[in-house]
Each structure stands twice: as structure tokens, then as C-alpha cells.
Design a protein around this nucleic acid. Structure first.
Lengths: 323, 323
DNA sequence: CGATTCTATTGAAACGTTTCAATAGAAAAT
DNA sequence: ATTTTCTATTGAAACGTTTCAATAGAATCG
């Protein structure tokens, strides 16, 4: 693999001249520059990114750190982030890590967007600094160089809950995901707020069903719940659509008609939502927009334009057939 | 940001000792090693990946290059690749690039898996070499250091086509994606083979419908097709599920009953397939397995175990309600 | 014509590691 | 007591760039 040095030798110029030339620096007269570039190209020269980054102390790469690639949820968001990153002349790398987080720790990127519960706050506060800003999408965290860009989860769940209540449901239950999901727990809060607003009390035993965000887990949890409780609530709010779909499946199998006997509203509005039977009423999350906002925020910090880039993400209820 | 040098100064040892220590090299007695590691840790030392890579001429990172993050199709595959990469002690970065392909060209990774039609064969053959193997999943390409890991697309489409034919359909049409999708065109070939096997001829005008792999495009293309043709084929084979779903929507709206008036089979078996009405008959692609095979192949090349790691991916027809 | 400015080119340090070869001193062997 | 081996540590080169400062020669100026 030829280096600048090799090209320099063949072109009979110095390394600096080659460097300037391949980077199209007008310092070098066009004629020389083109000659050198030709030679470099012929030799199959390709810059070494690591050497470059080392010297420049900058990578022009943004990292997106996820806890996994699965789920229909993230791809839209990734697109939003990607658009902004490209627009800024950067590259995006997406990485899903569980333990090492090497890509974050060893500074392969100039800034990062985090949506990875495997990364602890301690790690994040340790790596973030003036020159290395972070945007977190899955937690609240206080740090001068870390900015959360969060969904208004309470509001969303409140929307869903009120919707059912307004439609006349007098008893509700919530299908939650695992406790360590920040978003999930905020959604639960929103549900409780909705109950309060209607002067209803909340009893964890009877109105909280725990699953883990997958369709299957929702199905299992609901089946179990139904076998244990004497009377079925008139409405269910789920912390995400997958679980809502699992819930509907369990209800149907138990002979409970949705939405007549029990209504169900989900959260996220995944693609599937409008295709299932009955079509799922859910809280729509503008995922791409969320990604865009996160990326913009990050560049705001990188470019140090002092001014807060404000962000607002609006959730809205999409009323379909299930509730 | 402290460097080895800074740590060395504070610990009163040489840079080499620090380097050996933080890398847990038993050359340094445990006592010293721990002392140095403590100090490094206290100072917030973090290795500089670029310096490391530059020196070692190795990154321990595998790149996955996609043309976009969208579509429900890729996430399963990414998981498969990810599993293998982690198992090998590497990291995975996923990147979607259109123009620059910097991450590939500037050697940020030790090997790459390509599924990106924006990357031209010329680029790939230029960068691939003994020390930098490539696996391509979206094309055929002859090069000693590039290995294709492809789906048996013809066979798959043949499966779908024969299924309809066996069920008695006497006229078929194919909904294709854009011409420059390798997979898509092979699927078209498989369809033609199916027709041949039953001694049916293929007329492009009447039996080939072009869309672009999205649900919407399938819907539009089919609507247009229906408005133009006098008689409707008894069966449709689509190059992917999204278009099949669009097709079904168009057919339904035109009052054509699926599967009674016309049967439809898709390709891929995306999550949605079993949820739509009627549930989609389709050719199941084991996406995760595909990813696993690709990654294994790549490591086979990296580890130079001469021996071909063989791979076989089996597609099978999933018969549901649409055909 | 000597002094000045400008242009094209270059030398060399620096970025932060890794790792080979060297060294000094202690322990073991003769 | 001298040589040999071993242990702990270190110095320095190298990886491939970028970029500041230096240089030499040409062009312009007074």
C-alpha cells in the first residue's frame, strides 16, 4: 500500500508537496498538483485515515451507539440522523456495543449520539468534554457537554390514556416494558397522570403488567394477567406497539373482543400498526424527526454556537380501530 | 486529554512501561503494572485508537456498508453479522454511504461486508487485497480477495412461481424492482425459469411490471397495470414483500379478490407478511443466517484458513392465504 | 544593481502509540 | 570472583499524515 512517501519518491517531489497536492491545496500550482495527483492515483495511493486523524485530532465522523440493531423502531431515526450528518460533511458510523465501547472510548468519532442502555452514565460523563459532545436519547443526565434529546413520553402516554378515558373506559391497565427503560417508565408516568386527571386511583397489582417490549412478551404477560384477574379492564395502554399487538392477540384468544370488550392503545406507531386486525390506535412518534433533532443538537454543540438549538417533538394520537 | 507520556511522567516510569502496563503485558511485574494502571485510570487516560491503529496497522473493526438504513429487511441480517463479529473479538461499524466511502477507502476497518449498490465494482476491486478482504452480498464479482455470499434468488423465485403454477394458475406476471438490484434481477430469472419449466412463454410487455421495491411503488405500478390490461393474470410473483403488499392493495381496490381471482406471492417474509389481510404467501429468507454466513466467510478470509468456508442458505416457501 | 517581495518547494516536528533492541543490576552458575 | 542468565526497565524508531517555518530562486521595485 503506497504512502505519501512512495508517491513523493516517484514524483520527485517532497512529501509535503504530495500531501498538499492530494488535498488540492492551491498553494501548489495547478500543473504540479495535477501531475502529482495523477501519479498518486496510478500508484493506487489512498490516504491513511488513522494517520490523518491522529495528526488532525479530528475524525469528521459521528457515532451512533445503539444497544442493538433490531426492532423496526430505529431505522427511521437512523435515517434522520444520517441525513443531517451527511449534510454537515461528516460520516456516520453506527455501532451496537455491549461491553467494550471501544469506538466511543478510543475516540474514533468527533461526537456521539447515544441510545444504548448498556452504556452507563459514568462512562458517558467520563468521555464527554468540550471537544467531544454527546447527545443522549435514552436518559436524563446533567453534564455541560451532554444534551438529552428526549421524546415527550409522559405527554404521549397521557394522550393515549385520556383518549380511552374520554371514550368512556372506566378501568384501565398499563402494559409496561422493562424497568430500566427510561422512555418506558416515563410512559408509565404519563399513564398515571392520565388516571389522576380523571380522579382515578392507580393500583400496581391490578393495573400494571410487566413485559419486555416484544410482541411475544406482551402476549405472555397478558395471557397470564387474564388468567389471574376476575374482571378485565375496559382499556389497555401499552408502552409500545409490539406489546400492544401481543396484548390484542392474547385478548382475542381469550374471547375478549377488541375494541368492544376492551380497547387497546399502543405507542410508537410502527409500520405494522395500521396493518394488524383491528388496526392499532396508537401514539405516533415522528422517529425521523427525532433523529434529525438529535443530530442537529449535536452539531450545535460541536459548532459551539453557544445558542441553544431548541427542539420540540410532537406526539399525536392516531385513532384507528383498536381503541 | 492525557497521553501515555503524561501518565509516564506522573508515574515516574517510561512511556514503554506505561504502554505495557495498560495493555496488561506480563513483562511488567504485577505490582508496577497495577500502580501504573491506577495512575492512568485516575488521570482519565484513554488510549488513542488512531495512534494505535496507525502503529499496529490493524483496527480490529469490521465494516458493514449499506446503501441505507431503511427497510425492515436489514436489521435481522445486521444482528447475524454482529453476533459473529463480537464473537471474534472485533467491533462492527455500520455505515451507509453514497459518495465518498471514506470509511472504506481510508482503512478504518480490517475487512468489510458490502451491500451497497452505490459502491461500484471498480472501487471494490481497488481496495480489496490480501490483507483487506471483502464479502459482497449484493453482486457477483471475480476477485481473489472478494467473496460473494448470495441468496439463491433464482431458486427462491422458482419456488414461488411453481407454487402458483401447481395451484393451477395458468397465467402469471412478475412485479420487479429496479433493474440495478442484483437480487431483484435474479429473482426475475427464477420466475422465468418457473414458466419454462411449465412450458409457458414469457412476454415482457404483459408479464413484467416494474416498481422500485417499496409498497407504494408496487401499488402504483399495479394500479397502472390493471388500467391498461384487458385480462388479469391469475397469479403474481413479486420480487419482494413490500411490493406484493402494494399489489394486493391495488388488486383489492380494483375489486379483484386475493387469492380467489388472483393469487400473490412475495419474497423475503418480512414481519408484516403474516399480519396483512390476506396473510402473505412468500419465500422465506433466513436473514440472520445470511448475515452470519457472510461474517463467517469474511473471518475465514481474514484468518486465511485457506479452506473455503462453505455456505448454503436455504429458502423455503411459506404458504399463507394470499396464494 | 541591490533590496524587496513573491512563488514554489521543502525539511522537520508533531500527533500517540507499539515494540524491538539495549541496558543496568540482581541472581544464579561456574 | 568471574561469567552467565534473568528481570525490570527504558530509549528510540516507526506507523503516515499535516503544517509551520525555512529556503532558494524568480520577479518586481526603487
Amino acid at each position: 500500500m503506497p504512502t505519501l512517501k512512495d508517491v513523493a519518491r516517484k514524483a520527485n517531489v517532497s512529501v509535503s508537496t504530495v500531501s498538499y497536492s492530494v488535498n488540492d491545496n492551491p498553494l501548489i500550482p495547478e500543473e504540479t498538483r495535477n501531475r502529482v495527483k495523477m501519479i498518486a492515483n496510478d500508484m493506487g495511493y489512498r490516504p491513511n485515515g488513522n494517520a490523518k486523524n491522529l495528526k488532525k485530532q479530528k475524525t469528521n465522523i459521528i457515532g451512533l451507539f445503539l444497544s442493538g440493531f433490531s426492532g423496526p423502531f430505529f431505522t427511521d431515526m437512523m435515517e434522520g440522523i444520517h441525513d443531517v450528518v451527511l449534510e454537515k460533511g461528516f460520516e456516520l458510523v453506527v455501532s451496537s456495543s455491549v461491553e467494550q465501547h471501544r469506538l466511543l472510548v478510543e475516540r474514533y468519532v468527533d461526537g456521539a449520539i447515544i441510545l444504548n442502555y448498556h452504556m452507563e452514565n459514568e462512562l458517558l460523563t467520563k468521555v464527554a468534554n468540550e471537544k467531544f459532545p454527546l447527545v443522549v436519547m435514552d436518559r436524563m443526565i446533567e453534564h455541560p457537554n451532554i444534551t438529552p434529546v428526549l421524546l415527550p413520553n409522559e405527554e404521549g402516554a397521557l394522550l393515549g390514556t385520556k383518549h380511552l378515558l374520554e371514550k368512556g373506559a372506566s378501568s384501565l391497565a398499563f402494559i409496561a416494558g422493562s424497568k430500566d427503560s427510561f422512555d418506558g417508565e416515563r410512559r408509565l408516568q404519563g399513564f398515571k397522570q392520565g388516571l389522576s386527571a380523571y380522579n382515578l386511583s392507580f393500583c400496581e397489582k391490578e393495573q400494571l403488567i410487566r413485559a419486555d417490549f416484544t410482541e411475544e412478551s406482551g402476549y405472555i404477560a397478558m395471557t397470564e394477567y387474564l388468567s389471574q384477574s376476575s374482571e378485565v379492564p375496559e382499556g389497555f395502554v401499552a408502552a409500545n406497539d409490539e406489546m400492544a399487538i401481543g396484548t390484542i392477540r392474547a385478548l382475542s384468544e381469550a374471547g375478549i373482543k377488541v375494541p368492544d370488550d376492551a380497547a387497546v392503545v399502543g405507542f410508537d406507531d410502527i409500520q405494522l400498526a395500521k396493518y394488524i386486525q383491528p388496526a392499532l390506535t396508537t401514539v405516533h412518534v415522528p422517529r425521523k424527526e427525532w433523529g434529525v433533532q438529535a443530530a442537529r443538537k449535536l452539531f450545535g454543540m460541536l459548532e459551539n454556537q453557544g445558542e441553544e438549538v431548541s427542539h420540540v417533538i410532537n406526539l399525536k394520537l392516531v385513532s384507528r380501530d383498536s381503541g
